[in-house]
């Protein structure tokens, strides 16, 4: 298991760069990871999705899939692809300090 320092904090990450422990996550880490995912600035709309994912994962124990986000958080598929281009659920999960979402839908 690898460790790396993001936004001044040393955290454990897996081989795909996802945080191992969601409790290590901070908002500063989210900002840094977002940059790595090609999102220069996190807007209010981004934070709304990130907060939903953190909350949902806290309740279910796993990162929400894209369909779970669009149906439960009230953010449209179109908006998700605009906010987190090229693989929204995966990107938002990584930025939110969660594991990779599982599930086919």
């Amino acid at each position: 298991m690898a460790t790396r320092t993001i936004a001044g904090k040393t955290v454990e990450v897996n081989e795909e760069g996802f945080l191992i422990n969601p409790n290590d996550w901070t908002k500063e880490i989210a900002v840094e990871l977002a940059k790595e995912e090609g999102i220069p600035e996190l807007t209010e709309a981004h934070w709304k999705v990130i907060e939903f994912c953190r909350k949902d994962a806290g309740a279910t124990g796993k990162a929400p899939t894209l369909r779970r986000i669009t149906t439960a958080a009230g953010v449209s598929t179109k908006d998700m692809f605009a906010l987190f281009p090229k693989g929204p659920a995966k990107k938002v999960a990584r930025i939110s300090g969660l594991g990779k979402p599982e599930g086919c839908v």
Binding site: F81, G87, P88, K90, C104, V105
Partner: peptide, 11 residues
């Protein structure tokens, strides 16, 4: 439908 959606989800 399933594979297309998965592909989009992987960018």
């Amino acid at each position: 439908l399933v594979m297309g959606w998965a592909a989009l989800g992987n960018g």
